[in-house]
Design a protein around this nucleic acid. Sequence first.
RNA 1: GGCCCAGUAGUUCAGUCGGUUUAGAACGCCAGCCUGUCACGCUGGAGGUCGAGGGUUCGAGUCCCUUCUGGGUCGCCA
Length: 591
Amino acid sequence: MLEKMKRTHQCGVLTRENLGQEITLMGWVQTRRDHGGLIFVDLRDRSGIVQVVFNPEYNREAFEAAKEIKNEYVIAVKGKVNERPKENVNPKIKTGEIEVYADRLEILNPSKTPPFPIEDDIRVDESLRLKYRYLDLRRPTMLRNIAFRHEVKKAIREFLDNNGFLEVETPMLTRSTPEGARDFLVPSRLNPGTFYALPQSPQLFKQILMVAGIEKYYQICRCFRDEDLRADRQPEFTQLDIEMSFVDVDDVIALNEKLVKHVVEKTLGISVEIPFKRMAYKDAMELYGTDKPDTRFGLEMVEVTDIALKSEFKVFSEAAKAGGKVKGINVKKAADLFSRRQIDELVEKAKEFGAKGLAWIVYSSEGIKSPIAKFFSEELLNELLKRMNAEPGDLLLFVADADPKLALTSLGQLRLHLGKQLNLIDEGALNFLWVVEFPLLEWDEEENRYVAMHHPFTSPMDEDLDFLETDPSRVRAKAYDLVLNGTEVGGGSIRIHRTDVQERMFKVLGFTKERAWENFGFLLKAFEYGTPPHGGIAYGLDRLVMLLLGLNSIRDCIAFPKTQNAACLMTEAPAPVEPKQLKELHIQINN
RNA sequence: GGCCCAGUAGUUCAGUCGGUUUAGAACGCCAGCCUGUCACGCUGGAGGUCGAGGGUUCGAGUCCCUUCUGGGUCGCCA
């Protein structure tokens, strides 16, 4: 009986330093190149790949055994590290200067032929990758993504630990609260007819931890929202959740800038300049048509409502008269880039984004080409061109809408579309931006009442507090979002810690005192016992990792993500359960 | 819930105007040969519910309807 083999080295880290050493490797067979009288095997483990040579003149037994192995077999190889002859060096792999002469081979486990090749840059349907996720994760890129995610979390914990934060866990089985996203519900066996909800975030618990005197809390925590999926949205996702006592907006922002700087520098080795730029919500909407502007390129929107009002173009003047907005974008030097047909495509795009239409002016060297020019006097047209900072060669695009927000958001989306289409985006950039001074409240047409834009515990700005009842929509919140390259990666606020303000807030939201206590009583009760001023932030960790890695989908940095139907193709969850289980839960399925 | 894209061999795809025989190619797989490959090479071979159901037609991978799955997006996501 041969003695049991013990792994001594990793494949991918072997170098000339190891020449002459007797080593034992364990890993997966990447490829076997069988020359009849000589067999090469690329052996792969987490660290990388190394070439193993099976030569009957070196060891016949190992050579014979190597005839049996196939791709993805798990094997153990004992052998000697040798220098490759100069002409056989492979510069494409890190271990290309050496190879391992095998004198013993053991097959630890065979493998079926994988349904797709285990290598990078494969073009294979994502659903197949998800079904065989364990094979997909063997691919170097995926392994790198998972490892990078680990590094991000490590850097976060390192920074927060150094700054006096305690990681505290909060319940996954909690109660459903109104407002916000749809909850995932868990039926209670012991309490028939009642349900837990999985947390949308640890929001209320972290505030209670502030009442509890924790002062500095964080948690890397799974959160759940039963809403439709997107490339950057999963029903279960990971938050970095932070809360601090005795702080105001600037304290939270300053700490988080240092945190982000630390994380990016530790993981990517890229230096990050702080403080980040700050932009008021109002400016973000006016200039970019979104509360998460991508500032990696220009094409800012220009206000032309006042000029539009004076024109004979009814679409413009009537939108302006109705209290709406007319906004324009100057696509510099694009007059020749867009044919009439391509401009029509832009019009269609704008409509997809909700605009009623898209007006355009081609300012070429031969003059103005535009279906709307005839509605403008020469003087007014010149005023418009001047406002738009237009020069010959520019393409001007305008959206008008009686609903000012729709004018902003539709043109804002068109701006993003143009940025991508014209390749204006510097993919290597990391543009961090704080969006601040969010409105506290938003009018909800469906519910016919104001709803909290952030959540009902967000503090109004002190200078706006007086308008809470008289002019709710003008009240700004002590809320802030961290935006990276046009994606919201974090958001938070200073919370209300005064009972009277909280009661006024609930009142504006249309909650009776009874209903507020019914839903949030545990929090309101806690607030009666000495609540420190506090505030915090929550990051979408998956998104942050996605953006730092330059991925297109959050799924590529989550080990086991779900599909657009919120299904796991590997486990085939969700799935029916036994009638007995339902009975125990007092649940009846209604078809 | 709306809109858009895709679905043909294990994989990635081609398949013209609805009709040329048994639906092709590459890679992978299987067998044989091969001592310096690393996208090894050479020879041969197997492999198909054209996502599913219905319809139009003398005839459907191809046209129509429904549906399922995957992806993108709007709504939604405090």
